[in-house]
Amino acid sequence: MSLTYWNSLAGGSLIGLACSAYLLLNGRIAGISGLLAQTLSGRAIWPGAALLFGLVSGPLLWHLMTGVWPEMTIRAPWGVVFISGCFVGFGTRLGNGCTSGHGVIGLARLSPRSIVAVICFLGAGMATATIVHLLTRT
């Protein structure tokens, strides 16, 4: 198994650790889209907003520890980037969760709603990414 897969397992375990700690300490679900909506509503934003502050601090800490900034490459054109952001924002609210709330925590607690949500967003995501790849390759 290559180093990448060990990194994947370690990274996933850290995400699971964060979700477990938030559950056991604060008794809440660390669903990022829900925390964002709660913070934007301006009502009862704590402690959720603090988790989002931690989230944005991660890359700074990573830079302090490793000396490099995390890599990030976005190939989609500007217009597509904005529109897809809107889709993700509206869609995660309508469906009540994203990759963290439904994907990680929902699957871990075997919630039927989350299993359906994951099938939908993984299916739609794979179909979209595959079709875009086939249409745009030269």
Binding site: S84, G91, F121, A124, M126
Partner: peptide, 25 residues
């Protein structure tokens, strides 16, 4: 709502490759 919302999220996710966590982080 659950199905339509999750499909719309998947569409956006597949277009750029970003979901809410990484977008904020």
């Amino acid at each position: 709502s659950l199905i339509a919302g999750s499909c719309l999220f998947g569409l956006g996710w597949g277009l750029t490759g970003l979901c809410p966590g990484p977008a904020i982080a």
